[in-house]
Design a protein around this nucleic acid. Structure first.
Length: 600
RNA sequence: GGAGGCGUAGUGUAGUGGCCUAACACGCUGCCCUGUCAAGGCAGAGAUCGCGGGUUCGAAUCCCGUCGCUUCCGCCA
């Protein structure tokens, strides 16, 4: 149904002569003593209103008392602005509403920050007054993009026979994974519901239920510390399909994201067919399982090249089982000392023992090295390093010698750091990439046992099943991560539907039969009644929208987010509850001691 | 839990040992002003420089502690 009044964005020259009523907030007021101009703002735009004391003395008197953010209903005739006073910067700049009456629907206090311009205001203040912050075009746009993306997802999946099904928010606590948020039970003293970390088990049950293609825009909860891309409650596109292999999940997901970005994103995709990379390759070439492939600086292993080097650090690292890896920065051979020091410091901050740099110059016999370790390097080694990293004269090579996983991590982070530092990221595109063939298990050093890398229902690759008992670290999973611009958007896998393999998984993870029964009994019983092969994925909605909107922080695409300390500054949560509420829930508080206030 | 950055009128910033009785812009209040659109002009109010302690003849400025925000590490099957 059309609204009964006119919005602030729709009037144009075609409406000249119409009598209209527009409603909205006062964006700006310009008082000329005689004429008063008011810019009225709503979601759809801004329209100039002019109050003339000669035509409408009463309305003019009202306009004198109006201030920013007052809510008005203005009635008047749409007029063409006088020759020479049109504003080409405004969508409605050809016209104005010549006031006959102004109705102040509500006054406003002076806002604590500017609503009529974008400025870099302290985020706590924005969050405390989020309802004012959301009046900004930036937030309006972000929330609109979010709506469009979610609507696109629903339409796309609806076209492909998916059913959207809601699963409970109050579920059962499982000690797996992240810390649970829990809800005390009034009816069962001492017992608790948990909020879902994801609807993982429920969607698998829906597959057994014959739903066959399920999705949900699912709210998930994890009681872990926050980051720029992590909130304690967040939204996933949770989806699952029956009778599919990995390829079908990848194709469905890839199609969805490709079309969604084509329709909504402002930037094109670097490649419309998402590149695929094994976990192993990603760690080797990018030092991370969520590579940003919008820039080069690819990492190479040069251990073979310098294993016999006279430079002891290199040779010794390799002979003791470590690696030497590095990458080249094009055109930076002449790097000043201060920048070398800064890079070294950064690398050490990432966990490196040190950083070797080699500037390549053209010399008499080909390449010459400018480096503190130049005197230890043969011409052949310099050439070998250049070949391995793809460097040529004028480029700067950086190397780290360490244990394999440490070297990979340091270089991965250094690669991102350098790209940012030297502006090497192609910000004009989005780059998706699939990371495949993750290991099924990770070794938990603290607990001295194998842990599920994804979750315990992830299927091993068929050809790796023989190594389940003999060499668990070698077993690859039928799992996959969708990565965009260096952010992990989501993970998925083909699940185990074979009870005997599931039992072997639990055995390897060190669960006793009692633990298995207590945690997963319901799911395993369901698997005994005809579970179809199935698999799915769960991309994060907030991160996707963040990247679609070009934001650096998911709080910018969430209407009412928590701050980094996990507080809702607008509502004031968390907060104490009444003793009566505690009693009803059979709870007693066991608070940490108050900090000593004697010295304050 | 750890590391870095930040904290000065309502907002954004300047000021890094005395010239600070803390400056500038916007906002706010009052007056003037009939074609502005970041309107303009004049006048004015508004800050115990996050908080506490210390060094010093003297601290927004240096030191110590503490609190808040933020980014990262740990954590996030």
């Amino acid at each position: 149904m059309k609204r009964s009044y006119t919005s602030c964005g729709e009037l144009n020259a075609g409406n000249i002569g119409d009598t209209v009523t527009i409603k909205g907030w006062v964006n700006r007021r310009r008082d000329h003593g005689g004429l008063i101009f008011l810019d009225l703002r709503d979601r759809y735009g801004i329209t100039q209103v002019v109050a003339n004391p000669e035509n409408a003395p009463e309305a003019h008197r009202t306009a004198e008392g109006v201030r920013g953010e007052f809510v008005l209903a203005v009635t008047g005739e749409v007029g063409r602005r006088p020759e020479g006073t049109e504003n080409p910067n405004m969508a409605t700049g050809e016209i104005e509403v010549v006031v006959s009456t102004i109705d102040v629907l509500n006054p406003s206090k002076t806002p604590p920050f500017y609503v009529n311009e974008e400025s870099d205001v302290d985020e706590s203040l924005r969050l405390r007054y989020r309802y004012l912050d959301i009046r900004h075009p930036r937030m309006q746009r972000n929330l609109r993009i979010r709506h469009q993306a979610v609507k696109f997802i629903r339409d796309y999946l609806d076209d492909r026979d998916f059913l959207e099904i809601e699963t409970p928010i109050m579920v059962k606590s499982t000690p797996e994974g992240a810390r649970d948020y829990v809800v005390p039970s009034r009816l069962y003293p001492g017992e608790f519901y948990a909020l879902p970390q994801s609807p993982q088990q429920l969607k698998q049950l829906l597959m057994i239920s014959g739903v066959d293609r399920y999705y949900q825009i699912a709210r998930c909860f994890r009681d872990e510390d926050l980051r720029a891309d992590r909130q304690p409650e967040f939204t996933q596109l949770d989806l699952e399909m029956s009778f599919v292999d990995r390829e079908e999940v990848l194709e469905l997901t890839e199609g969805l994201f490709r079309e969604m970005f084509k329709q909504i994103a402002e930037k094109p995709l670097q490649q419309t067919t998402f590149p695929r990379m094994s976990y192993h390759d990603s760690i080797l070439r990018y030092g991370t399982d969520k590579p940003d492939v919008r820039f080069g600086l690819e990492i190479s292993d040069v251990s073979q090249v310098i294993q016999d080097s006279e430079f002891g650090v290199f040779a010794n690292t390799v002979s003791s089982g470590g690696v030497v890896r590095g990458f080249a920065i094009p055109g930076r051979a002449e790097i000043p000392r201060s920048q070398v020091d800064a890079l070294t410091e950064a690398a050490q901050g990432f966990g490196a023992k040190g950083l070797v740099w080699i500037g390549l110059e053209s010399g008499e016999n080909g390449l010459a090295a400018r480096s503190p370790i130049a005197k230890f390097l043969s011409d052949g080694e310099v050439r070998g390093l250049a070949d391995a990293t793809g460097a040529s004269a004028g480029d700067l090579m950086l190397f780290v010698a360490d244990a394999e996983d440490r070297a990979a991590e340091v270089l991965g982070r250094l690669r991102n750091h350098v790209a940012e530092q030297y502006n090497l990221i192609d910000e004009s595109v989005h780059a998706f990439v699939w990371i495949l063939d993750f290991p099924l298990f990770e070794w938990d050093e603290d607990a001295q046992r194998w842990d599920a890398a994804h979750h315990p229902f992830t299927s091993p690759m068929d050809e790796d099943i023989p190594y389940l008992d003999s060499d668990p670290g070698r077993v690859r999973a039928k799992s996959y991560d969708l990565v965009l611009d260096g952010y992990e958007l989501g993970s998925g896998s083909i699940r185990i539907h074979d009870r005997s393999i599931q039992n072997r998984m639990f055995g390897l993870l060190g669960y006793s039969e009692e633990q298995v029964e207590a945690r997963f009994g319901h799911l395993l019983r369901a698997f005994e009644y005809g579970a179809p092969p199935h698999g799915g994925i769960a991309p994060g909605i907030d991160r996707t929208i963040m990247l679609l909107a070009g934001e650096q922080n998911i709080r910018e695409v969430i209407a009412f987010p928590k701050n980094q300390s996990g507080q809702d500054l607008l509502m004031g949560a968390p907060s104490p509850i009444e003793p009566e509420q505690l009693d009803e829930l059979h709870l007693q508080l066991n608070l940490p001691p108050e900090p000593d206030e004697e010295n304050s």
